[in-house]
Lab assay of single mutants.
Amino acid sequence: HHHHHGSGALAALHAEGPLAGLPVTRSDARVLIFNEWEERKKSDPWLRLDMSDKAIFRRYPHLR
């Protein structure tokens, strides 16, 4: 159930192989992290948004 927010940013994801479903670039990863943060913020208003490279690598090590 993907609803768009204002920016309408869509992340490019790997379609197949071992990385299927994972973001292709760091900016794609940022979109995913932001979208998930927006969702989680509803139940956790104090949740901090962390889109640093460090956060991205921790989450998606293949982007190193």
Results as ranks from 00 to 15, higher is better:
residue 57 F to R: 06
residue 11 A to K: 03
residue 63 L to V: 01
residue 32 L to H: 04
residue 16 E to M: 07
residue 54 K to I: 10
residue 54 K to M: 11
residue 3 H to D: 09
residue 20 A to E: 09
residue 13 L to F: 05
residue 38 E to H: 15
residue 22 L to R: 03
residue 53 D to T: 08
residue 8 G to S: 10
residue 60 Y to I: 00
residue 60 Y to N: 01
residue 26 R to L: 15
residue 28 D to Q: 05
residue 51 M to F: 08
residue 34 F to Q: 06
residue 38 E to T: 13
residue 9 A to C: 13
residue 25 T to F: 04
residue 52 S to F: 01
residue 46 W to Q: 15
residue 52 S to I: 01
residue 35 N to I: 15
residue 25 T to N: 06
residue 28 D to V: 04
residue 27 S to F: 15
residue 10 L to N: 13
residue 27 S to Y: 15
residue 57 F to Y: 13
residue 30 R to F: 05
residue 37 W to K: 01
residue 1 H to L: 13
residue 20 A to F: 11
residue 37 W to L: 02
residue 17 G to N: 10
residue 21 G to I: 02
residue 20 A to L: 09
residue 56 I to F: 01
residue 15 A to W: 08
residue 21 G to T: 03
residue 52 S to E: 02
residue 58 R to F: 11
residue 32 L to W: 02
residue 31 V to L: 13
residue 6 G to P: 12
residue 52 S to T: 09
residue 39 E to L: 09
residue 53 D to C: 08
residue 3 H to F: 14
residue 58 R to W: 08
residue 57 F to E: 15
residue 57 F to Q: 07
residue 18 P to H: 06
residue 4 H to P: 11
residue 53 D to I: 10
residue 15 A to G: 12
residue 46 W to M: 14
residue 23 P to N: 00
residue 16 E to Q: 10
residue 35 N to T: 11
residue 63 L to Y: 00
residue 62 H to E: 01
residue 40 R to G: 12
residue 2 H to S: 10
residue 21 G to D: 04
residue 44 D to I: 05
residue 26 R to Y: 09
residue 57 F to C: 09
residue 43 S to H: 12
residue 55 A to F: 11
residue 30 R to N: 04
residue 64 R to A: 12
residue 13 L to H: 03
residue 33 I to L: 11
residue 36 E to F: 04
residue 47 L to K: 05
residue 2 H to N: 10
residue 13 L to R: 05
residue 53 D to V: 08
residue 55 A to E: 15
residue 14 H to I: 08
residue 2 H to Q: 10
residue 51 M to S: 05
residue 17 G to T: 02
residue 33 I to H: 01
residue 58 R to N: 15
residue 21 G to P: 02
residue 22 L to I: 02
residue 51 M to I: 15
residue 13 L to C: 07
residue 30 R to A: 08
residue 29 A to N: 00
residue 17 G to Y: 03
residue 5 H to V: 13
residue 26 R to H: 08
residue 22 L to S: 03
residue 10 L to C: 11
residue 45 P to A: 07
residue 9 A to F: 13
residue 19 L to Q: 05
residue 15 A to L: 12
residue 59 R to D: 05
residue 16 E to D: 14
residue 14 H to W: 12
residue 34 F to Y: 14
residue 50 D to L: 04
residue 31 V to E: 05
residue 14 H to A: 03
residue 2 H to K: 10
residue 23 P to I: 01
residue 27 S to P: 05
residue 1 H to R: 09
residue 49 L to Y: 06
residue 48 R to L: 11
residue 28 D to E: 03
residue 49 L to I: 06
residue 37 W to A: 02
residue 53 D to A: 07
residue 19 L to I: 03
residue 12 A to F: 09
residue 62 H to L: 01
residue 27 S to M: 15
residue 6 G to Y: 11
residue 37 W to R: 01
residue 45 P to N: 07
residue 47 L to M: 09
residue 46 W to C: 14
residue 25 T to L: 05
residue 59 R to S: 06
residue 13 L to M: 07
residue 41 K to Y: 08
residue 19 L to M: 07
residue 50 D to M: 03
residue 63 L to E: 00
residue 23 P to G: 00
residue 58 R to V: 13
residue 62 H to W: 02
residue 44 D to F: 10
residue 10 L to I: 14
residue 25 T to A: 08
residue 56 I to A: 01
residue 7 S to K: 14
residue 39 E to F: 07
residue 36 E to Y: 04
residue 29 A to Y: 00
residue 31 V to F: 07
residue 39 E to W: 06
residue 29 A to P: 00
residue 35 N to M: 15
residue 45 P to G: 07
residue 12 A to P: 03
residue 19 L to H: 08
residue 7 S to V: 12
residue 41 K to V: 14
residue 12 A to M: 14
residue 42 K to G: 09
residue 18 P to E: 08
residue 25 T to W: 04
residue 25 T to Q: 05
residue 20 A to W: 07
residue 50 D to A: 04
residue 63 L to M: 03
residue 11 A to D: 03
residue 62 H to G: 08
residue 18 P to R: 06
residue 22 L to V: 03
residue 37 W to H: 05
residue 54 K to H: 10
residue 58 R to P: 02
residue 20 A to Q: 14
residue 31 V to Q: 12
residue 57 F to S: 11
residue 12 A to Q: 14
residue 19 L to S: 07
residue 38 E to M: 15
residue 42 K to T: 08
residue 42 K to Y: 07
residue 37 W to M: 02
residue 49 L to K: 01
residue 23 P to L: 01
residue 1 H to F: 08
residue 2 H to I: 15
residue 32 L to P: 00
residue 10 L to W: 06
residue 30 R to S: 04
residue 44 D to R: 05
residue 11 A to V: 11
residue 28 D to I: 02
residue 18 P to F: 05
residue 15 A to H: 10
residue 15 A to Y: 08
residue 62 H to R: 01
residue 50 D to F: 03
residue 34 F to K: 08
residue 21 G to R: 03
residue 42 K to H: 09
residue 14 H to F: 08
residue 40 R to C: 07
residue 3 H to S: 09
residue 48 R to E: 12
residue 8 G to V: 08
residue 18 P to L: 06
residue 14 H to G: 02
residue 61 P to Q: 02
residue 37 W to Q: 02
residue 9 A to G: 14
residue 48 R to T: 13
residue 36 E to V: 03
residue 31 V to C: 12
residue 50 D to N: 06
residue 54 K to E: 15
residue 44 D to Y: 10
residue 18 P to Q: 06
residue 59 R to I: 10
residue 39 E to K: 09
residue 23 P to D: 00
residue 23 P to M: 00
residue 56 I to W: 01
residue 25 T to S: 12
residue 11 A to R: 03
residue 23 P to H: 00
residue 64 R to K: 13
residue 45 P to R: 08
residue 12 A to W: 09
residue 31 V to G: 04
residue 59 R to A: 09
residue 32 L to E: 04
residue 15 A to S: 14
residue 61 P to G: 02
residue 17 G to D: 03
residue 34 F to N: 04
